[in-house]
């Protein structure tokens, strides 16, 4: 009996070695451990045996079945692995081929700067507001302490549309006036108003008849020039890095009093002097000041109760400094070859 089992095993091992195809293995499986396979055959006549013999034969047969099954399944696994490997081998790709270009969607550079500023000021509680570009003289000039005939109007060479009443806004300040009027002298205001503005300038590398201004306004109680300085510090650091220093210089604007010009330390030379800052170590960024009492009054805010500051700067100038652009027209031409670099997050 044991001999028989041993010879079956030997036959099985010999045949297994010859198997190369899955189908052959299936057949072999049937031949040995199938219903009428050779291993199963061993136990066929068990009923006729004595209990002792039955036990012994049973043990041998079970052992043989387990061993045969292991052998066949082992071989099966081996063959499957070989097949899979062959398949994988056939599926190797050249990962160095170019990828499918998922389209890029860059912001306009000016919008990128504006969004950065918006994000900062919104985090400080400022709303972002817009107003009409075709504007009334009343909002663009008169409410802002620039009455008809005032010399300050000459400095802002304006595109008039209808007489001296309707114009293309020469600054975004009318949005400030409109916001104050809406507040009816009752609520504090924190807002910025980035937007398009227009002046009669011939377009060249440093001039544009259309440009983006970013203005801001805060009206509340007990606001000081130092608060403006602190706010401007935050802005400068956000746009030009943590090491950026700021400086105020006295200046003159109609809608602010006192007025200041705001400089940032030159980020190229760190204040040592270079061609960008014309060897001064400083770069002028914006104009600002405390809201003129006449403007507050004109817009419904009692200057004895309310104070505030306002500031304004050009998105173009910021973008030029920040990204090293030296021609304003770049922002309005949209050369897609140049835009590629701007579809990404800001670097550190």
């Amino acid at each position: 009996m044991e001999k028989l089992a041993e010879s079956i095993m030997q036959d099985l091992m010999a045949e297994l070695k010859l198997v190369t195809k899955t189908q052959e293995l299936v057949e072999l499986k049937a031949k040995y451990i199938g219903k009428s396979g050779r291993v199963t055959e061993l136990t066929k006549n068990m009923r006729d045996l004595s209990p002792e013999e039955r036990k012994s034969v049973g043990q041998i047969a079970n052992k043989l079945k387990t061993e045969a099954t292991d052998l066949i399944e082992g071989r099966e696994k081996e063959m499957n692995n070989a097949l899979l490997n062959e398949k994988l081998q056939n599926e190797v790709i050249d990962i160095s081929l170019p990828s499918t270009k998922i389209p890029m969607g860059s912001p306009n550079i000016l919008e990128k700067v504006i969004e950065e500023v918006e994000e900062l000021f919104m985090s400080m509680g400022y709303d972002v507001v817009d107003g009409p570009e075709v504007e009334e003289d009343h909002f663009n000039f008169e409410l802002l302490n620039i009455p008809k005939g005032h010399a300050a109007r000459d400095a802002q060479d304006t595109f008039y549309i209808e007489g001296e009443e309707i114009l293309l806004r020469s600054q975004t300040s009318p949005v400030q006036a409109r916001t104050m009027l809406k507040g009816e002298g009752k609520v504090p205001i924190r807002m910025i108003c980035p937007g398009k503005t227009y002046r009669r300038d011939d377009d060249d590398a440093t001039h544009s008849h259309q440009f983006m201004q970013i203005e801001g306004l805060l009206v509340d109680k007990d606001i000081s020039l130092c608060d403006l300085k602190g706010t401007f510090d935050v802005l400068a650091k956000k746009l030009f890095g943590e090491s950026c220093k700021t400086r105020f210089r006295p200046s003159y604007y109609q809608f602010t009093e006192p007025s200041v010009e705001t400089d940032i330390s030159c980020f190229v030379c760190q204040g040592k002097g270079c061609s960008l800052c014309k060897n001064t170590g400083w770069i002028t960024i914006s104009g600002a000041g405390m809201v003129h009492p006449n403007v507050l009054r004109n817009c419904g805010y009692d200057p004895d109760v309310w104070t505030g500051f306002a500031f304004g700067f050009g998105a173009e100038r910021c973008a030029m400094l920040k990204y090293g652009v030296n021609d304003l027209r770049v922002f309005y031409n949209t050369d897609l070859r140049e835009m590629k670099n701007f579809d990404r997050k800001e670097g550190e």
């Binding site: 918006e118 400022y126 924190r190 602190g230």
Partner: peptide
């Protein structure tokens, strides 16, 4: 003005919003 000390306005904390059209 170089002698000014930077401070921030003492105003309540709030979140800024975009106006609906913006």
């Amino acid at each position: 003005y170089e002698n000014l000390v930077s401070t921030l306005p003492r105003v309540p904390i709030r979140k800024g919003e975009y106006a609906p059209d913006v």
